[in-house]
C-alpha cells in the first residue's frame, strides 16, 4: 500500500482550489467590465439623448445624470466638454480617446449642450441640453453683417 505524504496531498489540493478561484475571479472581472464598458455606455447615452431631443418641444432644458459616463471619461482622459457633441441633428458621445458613438434625431431644432460645473457638487454629474427653435439664417441678416464689417 503506497502511503501518500500528507504534505503533498494538501499542497496539491490548495493549488487546485487556488487555480479554480483565480478562474472564477477572472471570469467575474470580465463580466463586470463588459457591463460598464465605454462602448456600451456611449451607445446608451447617445440613443437616450437623441430620443429626449426628439420628444422635446422647442424651449426645453434637459438635464441628464451622466455620473458613470463622466467618471469613465475622466479615467480615459477625455475632457467633459468633449463627452457630448451635437452637430446638426447628430448626437455623438465619446467616453474614450478613440471611441465615439453617433445617433441622429429627427426633431429639426437647434440644440446646445454643456456639462455641469465640476466645482458645484449639485450639478457636476449633470449634462445640460437646451432645445431651441431652429434659427433661420435670412439673407437680410447676412447683408447686415457684411455692412458692419
Amino acid at each position: 500500500m503506497v502511503k501518500r505524504k500528507r504534505g503533498t496531498f494538501l499542497a496539491e489540493n490548495i493549488i487546485f482550489i487556488v487555480l479554480n478561484l483565480a478562474f472564477l475571479i477572472i471570469l467575474m472581472l470580465f463580466l463586470f467590465k463588459q457591463g460598464s464598458g465605454a462602448i456600451l455606455l456611449e451607445q446608451s447615452y447617445a440613443k437616450q439623448i437623441a430620443l429626449l431631443i426628439n420628444s422635446a418641444p422647442a424651449g426645453t432644458e434637459i438635464q441628464i445624470n451622466m455620473q458613470e459616463g463622466f467618471e469613465l471619461a475622466d479615467k480615459n482622459k477625455v475632457n467633459r466638454a468633449d463627452v457630448v457633441n451635437i452637430y446638426g441633428n447628430i448626437v455623438k458621445v465619446k467616453l474614450s480617446e478613440k471611441g465615439g458613438y453617433e445617433y441622429s434625431f429627427f426633431n429639426d431644432v437647434d440644440v446646445s449642450e454643456f456639462p455641469g460645473n465640476i466645482y458645484d457638487d449639485s450639478i457636476k454629474n449633470l449634462h445640460f441640453i437646451i432645445v431651441n427653435p431652429k434659427q433661420e439664417f435670412l439673407p437680410e441678416n447676412l447683408n447686415e453683417v457684411e455692412n458692419e464689417e
Binding site: G88, I90, E102, S104, N107, D108, V109
Partner: peptide, 14 residues
C-alpha cells in the same frame, strides 16, 4: 412636409 412639421430625416454617414 418636413419643413412645416420641423422634421429632419438626415442621418449619420454610417
Amino acid at each position: 412636409f418636413l419643413e412645416k412639421c420641423n422634421l429632419d430625416f438626415d442621418v449619420e454617414e454610417v
